[in-house]
């Protein structure tokens, strides 16, 4: 592996909104880009990479308009993943390892207020066996929730506890939504209730990565990426063990997930946090989703990137020495990315 060390040196996100405020995706993103440029003092970056999804916007090429927010002139070295922007960060990290460039801008954005995201997610499913059933993301998640609860012998109160903690944490985070303690919500799709589901959210986020001395120059306490890895498992929910996450386990192992103090998990449903804690070996001593996590703000396509940003922010402000950011993609945690960050500079 390359000797280049890469760090998260800046993280900016919108104050996420639970309803459409009338801003386009580009308008949501532009102030975030402006702020992160101000914060780093950089006007141009060695590489730029973003994550977004056409189906969220209901039209092709959603990333093209977003380029207007970046200031891509003169032309920039740029790429895009049709995935959560955490994978854009992965692509940028790989690029920085080459050593040709030493800074990268990564961003993601999404507005779930514009559509019914659980229904949009139907279009991600196997087009022969699953999508024709009209199966939505909430229904699929509920299948996994029951599989997990029954496998570990837990009850639904375990889910409620996750929601209560996430929402309480979210209320202390100015960027997250202000959601009340879980009430007696009816089942959305049993065994999941309303509070077990992610809230509708509009938002955007950006991260700047830098390598080596450039990172030290741009940030007082860079959050060094000591390990980052992502893994997938088979798509068909009937061809894998839904009760746990083998792909998260492997990614955590490869990224060196042990010994973290803080973990920001891309758990969009309450049970996913339980599955991920187990897969990543996070004990009770680990502070999980102090930001509130996706259950308190879920600007899809940026949600995973925000996890890495929040984890890095804990390193930046000195509250953690070693933190973990996690991102997921696909139905029922099919893909998982783990990024381990450290305040210790071994450069």
């Amino acid at each position: 592996m390359s000797a280049v060390n890469v760090a998260v040196v800046a993280f900016v996100q919108t104050r996420h909104s639970g309803e459409d405020t009338g801003l386009s995706e580009t308008e949501l993103l532009a102030p975030v880009i402006t702020e992160i440029k101000e914060r780093t003092g950089l006007r141009r970056f060695g590489f730029t990479c973003s994550g977004s999804n056409d189906y969220l916007a209901g039209a092709p090429f959603s990333f093209v308009a977003a380029l207007d927010a970046v200031g891509a002139w003169p032309p920039i070295s740029e790429s895009h993943v049709e995935m959560d922007a955490a994978w854009a960060l992965y692509e940028a990290w790989v690029k920085l390892l080459h050593g040709e460039v030493d800074t990268a801008l990564v961003y993601g954005f999404g507005k779930t207020s514009q559509t019914d995201y659980a229904q949009v997610a139907t279009r991600q499913l196997d087009p022969y066996y699953l999508a024709p059933l009209g199966l939505d993301a909430d229904s699929l998640a509920a299948l996994q929730a029951r599989a997990h609860l029954e496998a570990v012998g837990k009850g639904e109160d375990a889910l409620r506890a996750v929601a209560a903690r996430a929402r309480a944490a979210g209320r202390t985070n100015p960027h997250a939504l202000d959601l009340p303690d879980p009430a007696d919500d009816p089942y959305a799709v049993a065994p999941l209730r309303g509070y077990d589901l992610p809230p509708v959210t509009d938002g955007a986020a950006a991260i700047v990565l830098a390598s080596g001395d450039k990172a030290r120059e741009l940030c007082e306490r860079p959050a060094w990426i000591t390990g980052i890895d992502h893994r997938a498992e088979p798509h068909s929910p009937g061809a894998r063990d839904l009760a746990r996450s083998e792909s998260a386990r492997i990614a955590g192992e490869k990224a060196g997930a042990g010994g973290v103090e803080v973990a920001e998990l891309h758990a969009r449903y309450t049970h996913e946090e339980l599955i991920l804690r187990e897969a990543l070996g996070l004990g009770d001593e680990v502070s999980v989703n102090p930001s509130g996590g996706p259950l308190a703000a879920d600007p899809v396509m940026a949600t995973g990137l925000i996890r890495i940003g929040e984890a890095a922010a804990r390193v930046h402000d000195g509250t953690a020495t070693r933190a973990l950011g996690h991102a997921a993609s696909g139905p029922c945690l099919q893909q998982n990315l783990v990024c381990v960050l450290s305040g210790e500079d071994h450069g």
Binding site: H80, V81, V120, Q124, A232, P234, H235, S329, Q335
Partner: peptide
């Protein structure tokens, strides 16, 4: 949409990284 999910195991990526550009 995001067909890397549907195609992951079709491309032998079970337990491996797969991403979509």
């Amino acid at each position: 949409t995001m067909p890397e999910a549907y195609l992951a195991d079709a491309l032998g990526a079970a337990g491996k990284p797969i991403m979509r550009v």
